[in-house]
Design a protein around this nucleic acid. Structure first.
Length: 271
DNA sequence: AAAAGCCCCTGGATGC
DNA sequence: TGCATCCAGGGGCTTT
């Protein structure tokens, strides 16, 4: 479910509320992708300073150390003074003086990892190779172009890989390429300068619009406050195989790239 | 260095 | 209704 917009909407929905809270207790459920990396007991008594985002990771800064949180494919967070009793898919829970933060993740591809600092090896392993933040000032079109130039692989897969630009997941990659009029199979390195400029703008536009709408996605996304962004954003191509392109009416095509599905309009996306 | 495949895991939709 | 198959928002790791 979660790509950059959903992660950012989630962050915005509880960051202010949890800031300044004292951690009272932490509980883990079934194993997530990696072990927490510290004992839950030693987290009690620490304070939450802020919640930041890097790519699809949420960073919960504590007065000592930080938690790196990833929602994987099926994760979602809740934060409230009182939550319903924990269910079988609630695998992380942090009770604080301001409320309880809970991770629900049926598939358990998500993770909660403790690190002493952002420079600690556990953090660097996860954050070290991440590309530029697409919604930040630093998302420079020249750097973007330079990053693409050294990748001969298909542009769709380069976007997904996250080492040039972060946060563009399977839905928004298809959507951004549609907006830019680019075939998903085109080699990243061979994109013309004008196409790169267009793609740069398209990525920002698609992601920023989704954040503004409160997260989109196909199924049931909701923020940590329980607000739903369900279907607020109309997709142009994702999961629309065989349906008419909303611009030209041509049937949308789909294909597999690196065991992920890609959708595109053969008429609108030619270069 | 880059690219391609392989997994991790559960649940919903679809088909027989 | 039951059961098998396929597919799903990610991404680190291993192998070419």
């Amino acid at each position: 479910m979660p790509e950059l917009p959903e992660i950012e909407v989630t962050r915005l929905s509880f960051a202010d509320a949890i800031a300044g809270a004292k951690v009272l207790s932490v509980r883990m459920g079934k194993a997530l992708r990696w072990p927490l990396g510290c004992s839950v007991v030693e987290l009690a008594g620490r304070s939450v300073l802020a919640v930041r985002r890097r790519g699809k990771y949420l960073l919960i800064d504590l007065d000592q150390g930080l938690l790196l949180l990833h929602l994987g494919m099926s994760g979602s967070l809740s934060f409230a003074r009182h939550l319903p009793p924990a269910g079988s898919h609630d695998h992380f829970e942090m009770v604080t003086s301001h409320g309880t933060l809970r991770l629900n993740d049926p598939r358990r591809f998500g993770a909660v990892v403790y690190a002493d600092s952002e420079d600690a090896p556990e953090a660097r392993k996860l954050l070290g190779k991440l590309g530029m933040e697409p919604l930040a000032e630093g998302f420079d079109v020249n750097q973007f172009h330079a990053g693409l130039k050294r990748r001969k692989a298909a542009i769709k897969q380069v976007l997904l890989a996250g080492d040039v630009v972060v946060g563009v997941g399977n839905i928004y990659a298809s959507e951004a390429l549609f907006l830019a009029g680019i075939r998903p199979t085109r080699s990243a390195a061979r994109l013309s300068r004008p196409r790169v400029v267009k793609l740069h703008a398209a990525i920002r536009e698609v992601l920023a619009r989704a954040v503004a709408k409160g997260g989109s996605t196909l199924r049931n996304f909701s923020s940590a406050r329980g607000e739903s962004g369900y279907f607020q954003l109309e997709v142009m191509v994702y999961a629309r195989h065989g349906q008419a392109c909303r611009v030209c009416g041509t049937p949308i095509k789909s294909l597999r790239q690196g065991q992920r599905s890609t959708f595109y309009c053969p008429h609108c996306q030619t270069s």
